[in-house]
Design a protein around this nucleic acid. Structure first.
Lengths: 342, 342
DNA sequence: TTCAAACGTGAGAGCGCTCTCATCAATCAC
DNA sequence: GTGATTGATGAGAGCGCTCTCACGTTTGAA
């Protein structure tokens, strides 16, 4: 590794230099920096003055090496970049997480682990870069995170798939119940030929919402084979909707497993001249900004995405603080929001 | 800090342990791990076997403390979360950056530095967490990154604002020329009452595109006071469009400074019963997925966002490698893409 | 007044790695 | 065969911090 640019930079001041400037020992400066109460105010002040004057910032690597923690946590998203950026659900969750973290002195490391270098992600995680991790958008088969839990505290956003024991920590909503409430509303509206565009069936959220759909129909003595799978993207849902309409042209209502997907669905419906909610009533899931972005606002099962992010971070922070009393599961409420599409 | 959970975790194996297991010295293991050519193949193999067996992963903090580099770079976005996630432009840039980084052994740290804890972001950067930084979506007044350049190599996505010297590194497109080509197209179409929805005027991209608009008009002997400022969001653009239509109801064309904003504009136009491109022709900027997401596809000034991200990362990596010969500026080409809106 | 407790501070040993040297063996030219 | 060169390895000194102790000083109770 050539030096070039790098060595031209002025060296950062060290604890040692601050100590010398303030006329105290390293240990004392360390105490001041870490807010230890057992330093005389007078000394605290002079040390702070020295810190200020030298523009000192503690070196993370050294601190972390000595103390065995890093004051940062990872957000692992086993999803590709486009999907991650495309869905406002993630934006809300990340927002909630950072909001909680901003109150602490932890920082966030976002790892969007698209297919290729998962290996690299694991290395990163395991080489002591973070004290804990939050994993969201977790698919079956993403067991690459499984052994992560043996290394550090992990909180899942959404119930993790089977591979993990019952002692996992996670924040979720009751997707089954949420879906039931949405489909029930469709039924109450007098619709009886109800179809659904599902999420990926390798994700608990996808499976559970589909199960909720089936439960609600069964409870009403209805059934449906108008079921098409998609991938939580608008484009995927659009394609699925086309397939569904092809095979089941007579549906009068659609339960779509996410707002973003519903946007794709609405596009296809408009394109085919089906009016919403006239011809086809639509209920979706999330209540993200996508629900109100289109010409027809979506009736949707609202989940508190931002609060969920906040709760995930909060849970992790408490785990990190050694709090043994935290409950493993945190189910947050869903609520049906009535708008124009159904 | 209580121990609780943390101390329950099994300790990670160290270099020392690998050395012992392989019957060599620490130095030799270090050489193997870092791919030094001067170790006998036989020894390399036995060390690798030991690494494998112990499931060893080098400790980043220790490595970074000893070597003075971290093998990671930061992406700093002085923007709020919602804006960042909402704009597909960022998604493309980030994608390009990670693509380049995946080829290297650097990792990315995403810092979305919304208003509040900029201070925290600076601390993070300055405490030696990263070897270099990429700064995008840079506003005037974001001089909080200014002194960052004295600490580490920095590459800007988009020409930085004045505060920084001419020796900054950046990747950009010629926004003025791009805007001119777009507006010129509108003029060629025979439109003469052309308005514009601008980006933020505290951002070079906002200013330059507005300047391009003015230049193109002036060159054609036209002028316009139908200029409304927005903030690179769909909602902001929608509001701006309403204001514009109010004051200048007779415009027959609109140059909108980003695709995402054009989505907002198109919504308002549809709502007010103005046909596109019939009543009003629209040209926007970016050529992001947003350009083709609506019912009417957008004619837009295409900029190679993903490639730009790639170029930013590439530039930074070369700087980090001590390459003194890299050019400071990398202007990438724009190109007008013809679709339905104009 | 005397001794113990409490308090504030410093000395120094590590944390897990990198990297410069020194060392020793094998190779080479003459 | 001799001295010089090359090559592979190990020893050991840090990197900048934290944290345990030990130490000296102040305080308070008896």
């Amino acid at each position: 590794m050539t030096m070039g640019i790098r060595s031209a930079r002025p060296p950062q001041p060290t604890l040692e230099m601050v100590a010398a400037a303030a006329g105290v020992s390293r240990a004392t400066v360390s105490r001041v920096v870490n807010g230890s109460p057992k330093v005389r105010q007078e000394v605290v002040d002079s040390v702070n003055a020295a810190i200020e004057q030298l523009n000192y910032v503690p070196n993370r690597a050294a601190r972390s090496l000595a103390s065995h923690h890093t004051q940062s946590v990872a957000l692992v998203v086993p999803e590709d970049m486009t999907k991650f950026f495309g869905d406002p659900y993630f934006a809300a969750v990340v927002q909630g997480i950072t909001q909680r973290l901003d109150e602490s002195d932890y920082t966030l490391n976002l790892l969007v682990a698209s297919s290729d270098p998962r290996h690299k992600t694991m290395r990163y995680l395991r080489s002591g870069n973070v004290d804990g991790a939050i994993v969201i958008s977790h698919h079956t088969g993403d067991d690459f995170v499984a052994n992560l839990e043996t290394t550090m505290p992990v909180v899942f956003g959404g119930r993790p798939t089977n591979h993990s024991g019952p002692d996992n920590y996670f924040v979720d909503v009751d997707n089954v119940a949420g879906a039931i409430s949405g489909v029930q509303h469709l039924i109450n509206l007098g619709r009886h030929r109800i179809g659904t565009i599902t999420g990926p069936v390798d994700m608990p959220a996808g499976i559970d919402r589909l199960n909720g759909f089936r439960h609600a129909l069964a409870a009403a003595g209805l059934e449906s084979d108008a079921v098409e799978h998609a991938d939580f993207t608008a484009a995927g849902a659009a394609a699925a909707t086309r397939r569904l309409l092809e095979h089941s042209p007579h549906v009068d209502a659609l339960f779509v497993a996410s707002d973003l997907m519903a946007v794709g669905t609405m596009g296809v419906l408009a394109e085919q001249g089906r009016s919403v909610p006239g011809d086809i009533a639509v209920v979706s899931f999330d209540d993200s900004p996508a629900a109100t972005s289109g010409p027809i606002s979506l009736t949707t099962v609202s989940q508190p995405s931002k609060e969920m992010g906040f709760a995930m971070a909060d849970l992790l922070l408490r785990l990190l603080a050694g709090d043994e009393t935290v409950p493993h599961h945190n189910f947050m409420p869903t609520r049906l929001v009535f708008r124009d599409s159904a």
